[in-house]
Simulated scan of single mutants.
Amino acid sequence: MLLAGAAVAAIEILHRRYDGAVARGTLLDPSARRDRTDLDGTLNYLLVGSDRRPGESGPDQRSDTILLVHVPAGTKRAYLISVPRDLLVSIPPAPNGYGGGSDKINSAYEHGGGGEAGVRLLSATLARLTGLRFDGAALVDFAGLRQVVDLLGGIRMCVDTPVRSIHTGRLFEPGCQQMDGTRALDYVRQRYDLPDGDYGRQRHQQQLLRAMLDRAGETNLRDDPVRLDRLIRAVGASLTVDTNGVPLQDLALTLRGLPPDGLTGVQIPSHPETIDEVSYVVLDDGGDQLFAAVRGTRVPGWVTANPRWVTRL
């Protein structure tokens, strides 16, 4: 009885330690929030990667990455739907005085004031665009993920075309290669030197998430509690989450059976277009069909019928 009691107490202490490492926030606008999340049903999450730097929280930051994560009931598959950062959308008014209007979707984060308020306006914009309500959201400091990749011992990324970094001048040669956090984050932020521009960048960021899951599965962290502690705290330092009232440990238990090879990357049917000398991405009819498939839990069928917009990760 004493040993059992000690084990229960130890588990509770560990839970509180790691649960407290992740910041909580209100990231979803009421118009974008699902009334009640059923972990046994279909789940839709919003993942926002910000280019903010540590200590910066002003409105002059834009959302560097926007992903809709669709998990059908059973949690054996997940679809990572990348939203083009230059997608032309209608942004609703914000409490900070922004009056709303047409703009690139990654501007919604800035118009909302950055941080949690910025994600709320972005979520309202996406709810208006897609007709979806979300089961939760996460704001990820992509620069902070550098440490996570390093603690995993680096990840394996396959470069599909030569690209030179506009940030460092580094040339990424084609081929599969081991990358540390700095190199990996630099690679997945490039778009100007890619043949397909931001669409290639979306694909590379989807591949980054797959590579991180692969590496985490290969590493037996349970046998290295010090490293596990550092990794969990690094992840927590990079995240602000809104789980729609679901305990974080329950969500983790639900998603833990999702295999890395169960991920599929999806891009929204769209095309570049210059309007009044400004470059935008404009939604195609297929984009509305994709959103309807997500709302109607018919994404597997849509993926089969639209291979052009699908990335096998």
Rank of each mutant, 00 (worst) to 15 (best):
L255M: 11
N96I: 13
G20V: 00
L221E: 00
D51V: 02
D214Y: 05
A9Q: 07
D250W: 07
G136F: 03
D214I: 00
V89W: 05
G217F: 02
V159H: 06
R215L: 06
L27W: 02
L152F: 04
N220T: 10
P93R: 09
Q147N: 07
G154W: 01
L67C: 03
G113I: 10
D214T: 02
F142H: 07
V22M: 01
R201C: 09
I91T: 12
L87G: 07
R128E: 15
V159E: 09
L139G: 04
L14M: 11
V149W: 00
Y18L: 06
T304K: 15
H15Q: 14
V71C: 02
R16N: 12
M179E: 07
I91G: 11
R189A: 01
G100Q: 12
R298G: 11
H111M: 15
G97H: 08
A216P: 07
H204C: 05
L129Q: 14
L290H: 03
H111L: 15
H167P: 03
D141H: 06
A21D: 00
V148E: 04
D160R: 13
A117K: 14
G217C: 04
L255S: 04
V89T: 03
I11E: 14
G97L: 11
A184H: 06
L171I: 01
L14I: 02
L313S: 14
C176W: 03
S63E: 04
G175H: 08
A78W: 00
I11L: 15
G5N: 13
V71I: 07
K104N: 10
D38L: 05
L151W: 01
Q147I: 07
R230F: 08
L290F: 00
I155L: 03
V310T: 13
R312E: 15
E218Y: 09
D38Y: 05
L28R: 03
R62H: 08
D141G: 04
R128S: 15
L87C: 08
R16F: 09
P30F: 05
A124H: 10
P72E: 00
L213G: 00
G55I: 11
A138D: 03
G217R: 06
D150N: 12
A117R: 13
M212N: 06
N106R: 12
P30E: 04
L43K: 01
A78D: 05
L80D: 01
R191L: 06
Q267I: 14
G200I: 09
G301M: 09
Q177H: 00
G257Q: 10
R164S: 12
E173V: 06
P269G: 13
A7S: 13
G58I: 10
G265S: 10
I166N: 09
R36D: 07
S31R: 06
P84I: 01
D40N: 13
L209W: 04
